[in-house]
Every structure is written in structure tokens, then in C-alpha cells.
């Protein structure tokens, strides 16, 4: 968090040094950051802001991912973010931007299925087409979460149950990509523990039925 990977500012060397120190100390299996920006001109929004999906932004973010990977001495994963506005001068669909960023930099992806759904409603695209464009080999982890509706927009709040549409899209993603470690993000308006356990149970049952299906095919 907080690296502001897509920012036009120079990479925050202090933040990067702290991240490097953290990764060295705890040797996590995966290190990831969002495919977005959160600061420019040394002012921070502390929020995940969308990039314009242009060749210029793609070149920039690929170079930044490469720098971070070199510095940490490991492949990182980048995660697609939810967004509430689009840039009129974007020239690429989001899924192409995300796939190309991974392909060119060699990084992996955290595929946030809820963010795909939220953006498909907010910006009017076909969520399944997005999933279909993602290279299965690149995906190292899947995220799920709940959203809230505010007028015409869906807002990624991490404060509700995963919706039926997102479970269906998760299922489609698993069928295309294969089983992946799945994280349900719920960090506001925390519910009772049994609600969380039930969400985890649903995710597990999707993963298990996928494994059964692939065993039968084999």
C-alpha cells in the first residue's frame, strides 16, 4: 500500500526502502501493490486513483513495476482497482491495459473480481470479456469483496457480503484461470464472525467443486 505505483512523481525511495526492509524481514510468499496512483506533486490522496488507459501511462507504469521488481529482487503482483470515473482520452480498454502491464513487465496479477464487476457497472463494459482477456498464468491471487450502490455507481466498500453477481463472476474466473488463493476483503462495518466464516465457506465450496470438476475431466 501507498507506493503510488502509477504516479508521475519519482518513486518514493523512502517508502520503497521500507518495503524492501519489510520483505527482507518477513519473506512473504507474495508482494503486491495496486495498479493505480495515489499522489502527485507530493500531495497524497491516500486512495487508489485510476490511471488514464493510454500508451503513455502503460509505458510509465511498466517501467515503474520493473524498477520495483529490480529493487526488491522479486516478481511482484499488481492488482486491478475499482474506479468511479474514466478519462476521456483513454485509448485502451482497462483489461488490455492490465494484461499488457503484466505481460511487458513480467509481473503477476492479483485479480480483484469485485473490482471488475464494480467497474463493469460503473463504466458499462462486459465483465466476462475482462476476465477472458486476462492471462491465467499471470494470476497469483484472487480478491473478492462486497460493494454498495450509490445512485448509478457501485462503490467498493469492503463492508458487505459478496454479491450474487460477483460469486458468479468468481466462478467464471476460476473456470478460466484455475484455482487460486482467494482473499475476501472485509475491513469496514465488520459483521459477526459466523458471517465471515460463511463467506469463506462459499469461496471454499467453489474452489472444491472446481477441483472435483477438473478431476473428473482428467
Amino acid at each position: 500500500m501507498g507506493l503510488s505505483l502509477g504516479s508521475a512523481d519519482p518513486l518514493d525511495e523512502r517508502h520503497l526502502a521500507r518495503l524492501e526492509c519489510l520483505a527482507r524481514r518477513f519473506e512473504p510468499a507474495l508482494v503486491s501493490e495496486h495498479l493505480s496512483w495515489s499522489s502527485v506533486g507530493a500531495r497524497h490522496a491516500n486512495d487508489l486513483l485510476p490511471l488514464p488507459y493510454t500508451e503513455e501511462a502503460l509505458d510509465h507504469v511498466v517501467e515503474r513495476i520493473e524498477r520495483v521488481q529490480e529493487r526488491l529482487g522479486r516478481r511482484i503482483l499488481v492488482e486491478n482497482v475499482s474506479s468511479y470515473l474514466e478519462f476521456a482520452h483513454s485509448t485502451l480498454p482497462e483489461w488490455e491495459f492490465v494484461s499488457e502491464a503484466a505481460r511487458r513487465s513480467g509481473c503477476g496479477l492479483v485479480l480483484d473480481v469485485n473490482n471488475v464487476w464494480v467497474n463493469s457497472v460503473n463504466h458499462g463494459f462486459d465483465a466476462r470479456r475482462y476476465i477472458a482477456a486476462i492471462d491465467p498464468q499471470a494470476v497469483g491471487e484472487i480478491h473478492l469483496a462486497g460493494f454498495e450502490r450509490a445512485g448509478d455507481l457501485l462503490i467498493d466498500t469492503h463492508g458487505a457480503r459478496v454479491s450474487a453477481e460477483v460469486w458468479a463472476l468468481y466462478r467464471a474466473a476460476l473456470e478460466r484461470i484455475g484455482a487460486r488463493p482467494t482473499l475476501i476483503e472485509w475491513d469496514t462495518e465488520l459483521p459477526a464472525l459466523d458471517v465471515l466464516l460463511d463467506e469463506a465457506r462459499i469461496a471454499r465450496s467453489h474452489l472444491a467443486s472446481l477441483e472435483r470438476a477438473s478431476a473428473e475431466m482428467a
Binding site: 500531495r43 490522496a45 486512495d47 486513483l49 493510454t54 468511479y84 470515473l85 448509478d152
Partner: peptide, 30 residues
């Protein structure tokens, strides 16, 4: 990234602007 920088400066400025400044539903979320 001259254009990218300009785009980002403009959006951040709009997000940090005082309430009442022209906005859209999406900008209000941020």
C-alpha cells in the same frame, strides 16, 4: 509522462478542492 502528470495534477486538484466546486458523482466518491 508530461500528459500523465498534467492529468494526475488536475484530478488530484479536483478531489482536494473545497466543497461546492463543480463536481460529478464519481469525483464525489473520491
Amino acid at each position: 509522462s508530461a500528459c500523465l502528470r498534467a492529468t494526475q495534477l488536475e484530478l488530484l486538484e479536483a478531489i482536494l478542492a473545497a466543497p461546492g466546486v463543480v463536481s460529478s458523482a464519481g469525483l464525489e466518491v473520491y
